[in-house]
């Protein structure tokens, strides 16, 4: 017990400072050189202070969004891998991102010029789409089983992914070229949220999910071994599965509606963290969240500087790093 606490403290200190440093450093890095002294120089009116505008309007919300999305996707990845007892599960395995993508595609091609609670129609529609996918998958998993069948959950998720991607292709095919380009851009992930509105809309949902995540590690440790063994040790298996499923799905939906379906974070980060701190979820979950934040913030710095002034989609960076890593993981597992 004390050993776990010691490892937890060490992991939080190490990964926490990594996340902290990356969020602090990211707004200082970019294609336009800015002076920190000028940024915080109160004597210059904000409207004339380009350095401060770049810092507070363009870079800081991006870094914070990157941290929120990275932490959420990495933590949701850990939860899904334990819930599905499958090391290759990701936050997108059960169709949440496909539902979100379908919502976003529809909002883009229908040219919805609305905004709800300070977020654009695309963001709102993608979150609604993710909720739809969650509801369908959950109904499937409960339909023919008194408990909560993770196998049916997986199959339903995979089928839903395929079905939704067919619908997405259909919607994109009917869209005209400018809209098709925008839908494609959305699918590649983007953290340039230009302001704090979208972030503030997503954060409460992520916060609720993280409260649930704080309760999950111990039962997940037992669950990831064997549901029967977990039940015999007094774990309310169905309840744990339900909390894990809904909290991780909702967090994923919020993260995807904020930053788009940024791939590989939910699988690379948990595995890298496990290599470092071991398999205990009490350590892996918080450490993954912190490392996920640092990783995505760093990837986004690369995305906005590598080809400037052209903006690279951050999903391309994470995929370029994540693809080879995933293959390595597959080979190593055998």
């Amino acid at each position: 017990m004390t050993d776990v606490r010691r490892r937890l403290t060490a992991a939080i200190l190490a990964f926490g400072s990594l996340a902290f440093v990356s969020v602090l450093a990211a707004p200082l890095i970019g294609t336009t050189p800015i002076s920190l002294r000028r940024v915080f120089d109160g004597s210059i009116p904000f409207a004339d202070n380009v350095d401060a505008q770049i810092f507070f309007i363009a870079r800081l919300p991006r870094a914070l969004a990157g941290a929120a999305v990275g932490a959420t996707l990495a933590a949701a990845g850990v939860v899904f891998q334990a819930l599905l007892r499958n090391p290759l599960a990701t936050p997108f395995t059960l169709g949440v991102s496909a539902g979100a993508a379908l919502g976003a595609m529809l909002a883009i091609t229908l040219r919805l010029h609305l905004s709800l609670w300070g977020v654009s129609a695309v963001t709102a529609a993608s979150f609604i789409g993710s909720l739809g996918a969650v509801a369908i998958v959950y109904a499937m998993a409960r339909a023919r089983h008194r408990g909560f069948s993770t196998n049916i959950l997986l199959l339903a998720g995979v089928t839903l992914n395929a079905f939704f991607s067919a619908l997405i292709l259909f919607v994109q095919y009917l869209a005209d070229s400018a809209e098709a380009l925008r839908t494609m851009r959305w699918l590649m992930g983007d953290l340039d949220i230009a302001g704090y509105g979208p972030l503030l809309a997503a954060l409460p949902l992520c916060a609720v999910a993280f409260v649930a995540f704080a309760w999950l590690p111990r039962p997940l440790n037992l669950l990831s071994l064997d549901t029967d063994a977990a039940a015999s040790r007094g774990v309310d298996v169905l309840r744990v599965q339900r909390v894990a499923f809904f909290s991780a799905s909702m967090a994923t939906g919020a993260a995807v509606s904020l930053g788009g379906p940024i791939g590989f974070i939910g699988i690379i980060v948990p595995h890298l963290v496990r290599l470092i701190v071991g398999a205990d979820h009490r350590v892996v979950l918080p450490a993954s969240a912190l490392f996920g934040a640092a990783f995505l913030v760093a990837a986004d710095v690369v995305a906005r500087t590598a080809m400037a002034p052209v903006e690279l989609p951050v999903g391309i960076i994470t995929a370029l790093v994540g693809g080879p890593f995933f293959l390595w993981l597959l080979v190593r597992q055998r």
């Binding site: 294609t31 336009t32 870079r59 340039d192 002034p309 052209v310």
Partner: peptide, 12 residues
């Protein structure tokens, strides 16, 4: 091309 808001702030 796609650009970030930062670039627009910088281009003024």
């Amino acid at each position: 091309m796609m650009v970030a808001t930062e670039t627009i702030l910088a281009k003024q």
